[in-house]
Design a protein around this nucleic acid. Structure first.
Lengths: 345, 345
DNA sequence: TTGAAAGCGCTAACAC
DNA sequence: GTGTTAGCGCTTTCAA
């Protein structure tokens, strides 16, 4: 058992209360007493018991993050970076970060959110990969549990979020390919149960339409955000006759998978077919060829989401409750050069 | 404020004590009382206050993981997978997982471990990327704080760990390249301040020696585990005269960076130069060309480490305190085929 | 079978 | 300035 405040107080020859106030830096403690208490605390190596503080203060000083994992061999680099972002920001505000992992839409996930919403477990939650009619958001809103999401949702619910304007982002990508001369542009969509899946898909549709380009139904397929998924869907697109000359892939991980399939068909990326991704994960600059993509500052988003949540918990006014980041297109070799009329036939 | 045990007790017309025992399933409560209490609890939506339980029980039911982050834009997929592993296992044992992020060897990291070792914050810790003379391990051992590490260390300290036999793993890789006819094999080492860096480097040295192959000092360079680092170091190796015909890279992330540099020099991987990595991250099967590497089951290691920790915390006997996993070589195209005598000259 | 009472370690009114 | 007292919500002796 470790050193308690009581021990320190005894050593300093004061009451527990005084010791508490001395350490908390209250003004109504004589300088001399404060000294004695501080000295005693240091000598004895006193550390306040956080659990006791929490029980008393009725707050946990802990933020929760329930990470949607899709099974083992799950290793989306997104989460490492995002957790580093929230973790660092949380630490800066003296908050702990509780992480748990559950399959999306599973019973376990539901219970975890339920538990959090009940209060007493964490002071607030960070929600990612918002879904259409997201039950998590509905629950948290209903229960009045503080949270901030990375991602918008649909419906009349108003809640604080940070999001990247995926629609515009994919638009940049589509326009880029169109400007290079592509006409048969396919789209490997993220799951459209995810809000950003919808946005990205919509960005594709809208920009194609805005350029007067018809979309073949075959050109749109939905992947699961993994490399494997990307590879499978690209495979499917390559079997079309005629195949697309460009593929826009809903995230970098799938794009990397897609590139692999294409190369296995003996096709050259950037020449026979152009590829664009989304996220700009660090790896995307190191693929062969490097991947054209849309940048998303994950680490900073993590920090920002966390900072907002801390403000909400402490009832501090929020500068803005809805942050929509403007995407940047990162052009690399996978988009290739202008398409010749021949290739386009 | 939410429903407390007191509320439930009042509703059921019993004392708090009885309510507590009824819900805890003690045998000395009449079936009828138990019923009433359970009903009241359900109706009122009672959830025990974990903080109060923790204060009383003098345990947090929480595991800590202090993730060594090397700055923003940090996104090693290792951590996503590892956290998913511990998170799932922890949840299965009704433990929470507290994650914080600190730069290795920083003051912040030291304080975080200090805090954990003091007790009261978490019941135990998971330590990764063990270092030579690791101060974290020394601290935890000294304080008697329960922990399990992923990785061995040096010194007389005996502590529970899971580790992969990196030495043997790299050995497999080196032998594989030697068998293909390579003689000038370079090694991009992980930081040798990390234990696995030492092991991997040693695996390289030993296997080269065992085959009677001399090592040029120039052939060994040290990288920082990132793609960028791998790219830079490969660049450096390519400037050697004569350059190596094969490079073994200390982790897959650096290997991917190295491949990029090599390709930028117009060289063909698997033909002009062979590459091998370590970790078998999911991505390594999707690089161009796919990467020969040594498999490391991160997710399962996370589970196993976590399970061991839970046993230790609950003073249950540990089947084995030291687990050393046997590595498997995954041969893919980046190792190319046999080297011709010509190429080797 | 049940309840009163003590206490986990800390904070905060309120008196002195 | 400092101490007394009363909890935060829960578990657990110990008596009844």
């Amino acid at each position: 058992m470790s050193v308690t405040l009581k021990d320190v107080a005894a050593r300093a020859g004061v009451s527990v209360t005084t010791a508490s106030r001395a350490l908390a830096g209250y003004a109504d403690v004589s300088a001399e007493t404060r000294q004695r208490v501080a000295a005693a605390a240091t000598e004895m190596g006193y550390r306040p018991n956080v659990t006791a503080q929490r029980l008393q203060k009725q707050r946990t000083d802990t933020l929760g993050f329930i990470m949607p994992t899709f099974g083992p061999r799950f290793s989306d680099p997104f989460f490492s970076e995002f957790i580093a972002g929230i973790g660092n920001e949380a630490a800066a505000h003296n908050y702990d970060l509780l992480v748990s992992a559950h399959a999306p839409d599973s019973e376990g996930e539901r219970q975890a959110y339920e538990r959090a919403a009940r209060g007493g477990w964490v002071d607030g939650l960070i929600v990612v990969r918002t879904r259409v009619n997201d039950p998590r958001i509905q629950l948290l809103c209903r229960q009045g549990c503080p949270f901030v999401a990375f991602g918008r949702s649909v419906g009349e619910l108003d809640y604080p979020y940070v999001d990247e304007d995926s629609l515009t982002g994919v638009g940049l990508l589509v326009q880029h390919f169109i400007d290079l001369g592509h006409r048969r542009i396919a789209f490997i969509s993220p799951p459209t149960t995810l809000m950003f899946g919808q946005h990205r898909l919509q960005g594709y549709r809208q920009t194609m339409a805005a350029n007067g380009l018809p979309i073949q139904p075959d050109w749109i397929v939905e992947g699961d955000l993994t490399q494997r998924g990307g590879a499978e869907k690209a495979e499917q697109l390559l079997r079309l006759d005629p195949p697309p000359t460009a593929m826009i892939v809903g995230n970098d991980l799938m794009a990397i998978g897609a590139m692999r399939s294409i190369q296995q068909h003996g096709l050259q990326i950037g020449k026979d077919i152009a590829i664009g991704g989304f996220d700009d994960i660090p790896l995307s600059a190191y693929t062969n060829p490097p991947l054209t993509t849309v940048h998303q500052p994950i680490y900073d988003i993590g920090r920002q989401v966390c900072a907002m949540l801390v403000n909400i918990i402490n009832r501090r006014p929020l500068p803005t409750a809805h942050v929509l980041l403007t995407p940047t297109l990162i052009v690399r070799e996978s988009s290739g050069g202008p398409v010749s009329a021949l290739n386009e036939l």
